[in-house]
């Protein structure tokens, strides 16, 4: 799943809804988020990722983050969430499935 744009209090509900849809429509338990197109993300974005991770863990799965730009890597770092999500420096191409935009 690829996310493009800015994630904050204004856009987070849309991302949250997209995750809810994805998790309802599919039985997948591994989601890799391509964040290379995310220019900005604050704690509301992190909260959405955490709630998706929680749902995926209930299924025995995981949520991984790929290709974060420096600004996104910084928030992952200062919150310590880079040790909660597996962070890939680049996007593993074979894993790309859909491209909703936030």
């Amino acid at each position: 799943m690829a996310v493009v744009g800015e994630i904050d209090l204004y856009t987070a509900p849309r991302l949250q809804a997209e995750f809810a849809r994805l998790l309802q429509e599919s039985t997948t338990n591994l989601v890799v988020i391509d964040m290379s197109g995310v220019e900005f993300c604050d704690s509301t974005g992190m909260n959405v990722l955490l709630s998706a991770l929680k749902r995926l863990r209930e299924r025995g799965g995981a949520l991984e983050v790929a290709g974060p730009r420096p600004a996104v890597r910084k928030i992952l770092q200062v919150t310590g969430l880079d040790s909660v999500f597996t962070v890939h420096e680049t996007v593993p191409e074979e894993l790309l499935t859909a491209e909703p935009k936030a």
Binding site: D42, L50, K54, V84
Partner: peptide, 11 residues
Amino acid sequence: PDLENGRGILI
């Protein structure tokens, strides 16, 4: 990590 809120001020 279980909690989804409470990070803003620390960030």
